[in-house]
Design a protein around this nucleic acid. Structure first.
Lengths: 206, 206
DNA sequence: AAGAGATTTAATCAAATGATTAAATTTTGG
DNA sequence: CCAAAATTTAATCATTTGATTAAATCTCTT
């Protein structure tokens, strides 16, 4: 059944590893869980990826790229206005995290601890963000006095937190609000519309 | 040296457990690490707390109480205005997380996974929040038309995310912004002042 | 179809880890 | 000061877990 170069097995393992790592974290993920999730034997996992650590680094890197891929296209689009970009960013991130709700807390946890700390250096996150067309548009609007003096870093931080935090705090939010899954989804949908409005009002505040 | 009921040893262990659990999470924390951090033998840890799980539940509960203790006093203070409460909340939370930067991501991670999921039920987080004087002040301002129709849950979510997210994302923020610790602290200080202003502007936006 | 190479598996190893036990040491009450 | 109780330790156990190995099975070329 398996062809000479079996990419389907490699993909199955990676997919399983992504699921387990995202939901349990590096320390909580067991290689046997990943193998079982992939429907293969433990030895095969090491045959393909050599070690848990190596497999993790691949998943971590791809997760971060997934994270940034949603972003970079919008950030450097020359045809959309600053306001339109706000809408696109909220739209895309909330959609991504609706599909991958464990992604934000996984990445922030692993970046904070030892595991993922190395990966961040292999990605030019800094330049992708700070040399984007989005930054130029932001600076221009500030120069024209159309938005306030909020530093760009604070602005991005606030925008990201609006998008990311609801998913990280989902269990508490559902508990406090007494929300069922559908109601939580509705709240997220409402935020797609509101986040751009909120951000704009903040930018004019101080 | 040790008195009949040695509370100092018990406290030493709990303090060590708090440190290790907060920085590594339940799965990443090793009982031997905790014992070493406390300067005692592994067996003594089990003598006092019976098991890693039991010790964790104590730490988890106390962490959550610490989290809410900062809050509940402000939320039900009859003498401060809504605007003053915004300032107090930003002030207190940013101060707390400056001292305990691992607290937010620890709690959200463990609440999301199996470990802490039980603890949330033992705490009336929902009623503490939704039956507070803060909610009444919010509703009154809405009734008077002084703030917009933003649902209270979205409002609290936004306020919390402003306070919590910078600490969860600290490694990325420092990397992107090229910030040293002192500069990060300065940014947090600036947010103490700005968060109330931002929130007020959002409340008038939609 | 045969055999070489690739893929997959069952069995096993070694280290890490949570927990226990029995003995040693210290503290307390008489 | 002595003995009982409490505290602390070193040694050990059993399970989990990451990884390896040798054999079996499958695929593809000729």
């Amino acid at each position: 059944m398996a062809p000479k170069t079996d990419e389907s097995t490699e993909l199955k393992i990676k997919e399983a590893a992504r699921k387990v790592f995202h939901s349990k974290g590096f320390a909580g993920a067991k290689t046997r869980d990943i193998a079982e999730e992939a429907g293969i034997n433990l030895a095969l996992l090491n045959y393909y990826f050599r070690s848990k650590q190596k497999l993790f680094e691949i998943i971590m890197l791809e997760s971060m790229q997934q994270f940034m891929h949603s972003m970079s296209g919008v950030f450097n689009d020359m045809d959309s206005s600053f306001e339109e970009k706000l809408e696109l960013i909220a739209e895309r991130y909330l959609k991504l995290f609706s599909q991958e709700p464990d992604l934000p807390i996984f990445m922030l946890t692993e970046l904070r601890q030892g595991q993922g700390a190395e990966v961040i250096k292999h990605i030019n996150l800094r330049s992708i963000l700070l040399e984007s067309y989005f930054v130029k548009q932001y600076a221009d609007l500030q120069a024209e006095g159309k938005i306030g003096p909020m530093p760009f870093l604070q602005f991005v931080l606030n925008l990201m937190s609006f998008c990311v935090f609801p998913f990280m705090a989902a269990p508490i939010i559902k508990h406090i609000g007494g929300l069922k899954d559908a109601e939580f989804t509705a709240m997220v949908e409402e935020r797609k519309r509101l986040i751009p409005i909120w951000v704009q009002s903040m930018l004019r505040a101080d």
